[in-house]
Design a protein around this nucleic acid. Sequence first.
DNA 1: GGAACCAAAAAGTCAGACTTATATGTCACA
DNA 2: TGTGACATATAAGTCTGACTTTTTGGTTCC
Lengths: 233, 233
Amino acid sequence: MTTPGRGLHGRVLDSLGPAITAGEYPPGSVLRTDELAKDFEVSRSVMREAVRVLESMHLVESRRRVGVTVRPKAAWNVYDPQVIRWRLAGADRPQQLRSLTVLRSAVEPIAAGLAAKFATAEQCAELTECAIGMVANSRGHKLEAYLVHDVAFHRVILAASGNEMFARLGDVVTEVLAGRTHHEVMFEDPDPAAVTLHVQVAEAVREGDALRAETLTREITVGALQELDILAP
Amino acid sequence: MTTPGRGLHGRVLDSLGPAITAGEYPPGSVLRTDELAKDFEVSRSVMREAVRVLESMHLVESRRRVGVTVRPKAAWNVYDPQVIRWRLAGADRPQQLRSLTVLRSAVEPIAAGLAAKFATAEQCAELTECAIGMVANSRGHKLEAYLVHDVAFHRVILAASGNEMFARLGDVVTEVLAGRTHHEVMFEDPDPAAVTLHVQVAEAVREGDALRAETLTREITVGALQELDILAP
DNA sequence: GGAACCAAAAAGTCAGACTTATATGTCACA
DNA sequence: TGTGACATATAAGTCTGACTTTTTGGTTCC
């Protein structure tokens, strides 16, 4: 999905980042740069660059005479795609999946409404294609192919909303959907009702019916919430 | 609001970051590390650390034999608080304000609904205090004091939602509200209807009425959208 | 015209010396 | 006994220079 280990400092991050988000170094832990450098067998300059990046993610704080302190989870930049990936890969996975799904349930309906208003003809076509692809792979244990179209569908919706911040959630949604299919139990074919909803959203967007697109998408996300037992009574 | 210029590399960031987000170096521009180091009168190591941070924000990409390339806006980590601050401070301000307000309009109603279910007694009390503070400063050109309570109100809602990702939007909302009051035209007292809505939201949350809290908050955010001429017909 | 090759350019890496801020302990004095 | 000033050790921060590695773009030769 993303470029791992860009350079030496990147490999350090790929190792240190997940360790922190997984709570291996609990908040308040103090690390020392040159000790880390020794542990990871890299020069101090490389380790310093890695620490700087972690600092920009608010995962750690570097202070003179003290060291590199791990910050509490509440301070983390939980929207950083890399942090999200690290958390999804570790012990934090369930919580991360829940909060992301709740975020989706807030954002996607609004995005769909905006998409109905602002989507280009090309995006409408893409959307329809995705919906068709989902239908075509909705039966017969072709989950992999189904997922590809499902992911693409949601990405197009977010991009077509015309809101840059919504658009940037495409990666996040991708991770969530991919995770749901790959890691969770998902032997059966997708819910036919959900497939229909996607087709109908594509319709509504094409017809410029913002309210309908929003409502239908809300139904989709409610389904996603229910899958994770996040009830919305 | 946040710590500016933490160390030498921080000061470089405070200068280079805004320049990039403002489009001073358009996407595709190629910078060279040691040239930058010379320009900013810092050592290469310091400049490298700054570049690493910019890279982690997806503002630039560093490649061997090529240099440091500025990435297109679509790649930027627009959820990074620092990037948001840089954009709000520069030419991108209007667009940034719009997309943030749309994001708010998606997230806050859901957050309010969750808050109605999960807020602690303490948070309910805080919320009521904020609402009272808003009422008390709603007339007589006491906008500064009004704003303080307004901001606090929305932060509590987001925090009380129990969703870590919503909670982290508190800073963002703060920036938006502060910006609206300080930079935009806002001579008159706040809309009395909006004040009432806040009071009612506090009520609904206290009573655990999720649906009402959500609906009322949606009315608040619709108002925010209208202020920016973002119509939602 | 295309494939193999070469050279330059820029980032990447490392090691070592030095500077600076600061937490903490010490000691004198009240 | 408590409090303030001061000294000291510590770890991050900074700078410099040498070296390595990757990659691009041109050049040569078939």
